[in-house]
Amino acid sequence: MRHFTYQGLPTQVTFGTGTVALLPTVLAQQGVRRAMLLSTPQQAEQARAATRSLGNTIVATFTDATMHTPVEVTARAEAELAACGADGVVAFGGGSTIGLGKALAVRTGVRHIAVPTTYAGSEMTPILGETAGGRKTTRRASEILPHAVVYDVDLTLGLPPGISGTSGINAIAHAVEGLYARDTNPVMQLVAQEGIRALASALPRVVADGADMAARSQALYGAWLCGMVLGSVGMALHHKLCHTLGGSFDLPHAETHAIVLPHALAYNAPAISEAMAILRSALGDDDPAAALHRLARQVGAPCALRDLGMPESGIDVATDQALENAYWNPRPLERAGVRDLIARAWAGDPPAASESESA
């Protein structure tokens, strides 16, 4: 077995059904006496209802969390945080809200308690992506990681099929890249395999019947594991591309991941034989890239970047940006191959068969 380093994440995790009722205990354990509740406008009422047990511990509510964590939105939230004297934030929702919680915590030092309602997995990572001037930048630091996470399967029951599918594939993407990350290790590979298996099995059932508690529980469990992988090891081409596309063309985060994942995997396939073997086992398919493309269609996720509003002219723009700064990837980044990857994702074509088959 090769040499490796493993660092466990210190986040306190509570998982189950009805666990949102334990929030008062979790906040007390985290030393939070005055909290600001965070959500998007769409989830404001659900957030207030779910956190009612906190009573007067919630001293302010900010409901303008926005996709890609624009710095101007964070600045407004930070001003309100200072005005109310909160010593913690409760981020209720998906990646947009949890991203805002991370931005506030890393700027101010307040405690961050995440209550995820999607399968994005952002709550388990010390990674923050922020957008300024149309460009999205990402940083990783231990103080970005939420201090506590409360997973409540009940809160996912109202998640629409489309969001369930795309956020779940977004989580799978974290684990897929974690399998072949430069600093991957056997522990995270096991976690990644189990997370991918759980989500790939559960998502079609969740989309077919949103009230299937067993499927919802399995999906949330898988998302937790996949988020752990993203939080523990590095990433490569797939995440670089998705951040480039999201920040440059204001594309929705989860949908972009769902579209790009099979193509990025196909590109890297010739250089990641060990990861491909694990994926064949987790997905029960000899062609993991094609299997992930089929899964996206099966759960109703979009398959073309153009359907998200990206112009065809953006293919070359995104290619240039993806190659701008050197970063590690298991296969060398070649302009023609990266451009073809993006063009296929833009058009909604299947992943390049020659790449995936050559694994």
Rank of each mutant, 00 (worst) to 15 (best):
A214I: 04
G162S: 05
V13I: 15
A219I: 00
H3E: 09
H243V: 00
A236S: 14
G85Y: 03
T137F: 06
L179C: 07
L283W: 03
A44Q: 09
R107Y: 10
G337L: 07
F62N: 02
A266F: 10
A211D: 13
L283S: 09
E72V: 10
R306T: 01
V206S: 00
V73A: 06
P41C: 09
L261W: 06
Q189V: 02
G309C: 08
A289S: 14
L341P: 06
D320M: 09
I315W: 12
I172C: 15
G210M: 04
R294K: 12
I259R: 09
A291I: 08
S354Y: 13
G284F: 14
P270R: 08
I58L: 01
G247P: 01
I278M: 01
L251C: 07
S167L: 09
R34L: 05
M276R: 03
Q189E: 15
A258D: 04
Q46T: 13
H174T: 01
A296S: 13
T138K: 09
A254S: 15
V338M: 07
R205A: 11
T108C: 07
L230P: 04
A352E: 15
Q218M: 10
A198T: 04
I272V: 15
L261V: 13
L9V: 03
A347G: 11
V153L: 14
E312T: 10
T108D: 03
G93Y: 01
L27W: 00
V153P: 11
S273Q: 15
A75L: 06
A219D: 07
L54W: 04
G18Y: 12
L199M: 06
D340N: 11
I58D: 01
H263P: 02
L292N: 14
Q30C: 11
V191N: 10
T51A: 05
P126C: 10
Q42F: 14
I278H: 06
L100H: 07
A322I: 06
K240S: 05
G314M: 04
G18T: 10
G178N: 01
P70A: 08
A28N: 12
D212P: 07
L27T: 00
A282L: 07
G133I: 05
G95F: 02
R182Y: 15
W328T: 12
K102D: 09
E45D: 13
D316K: 13
P288F: 10
A223W: 01
L283A: 08
G227P: 06
C84F: 03
I342W: 11
T61F: 00
G168I: 02
A291K: 12
H147R: 08
Q193I: 01
I278A: 00
A103E: 00
R135V: 09
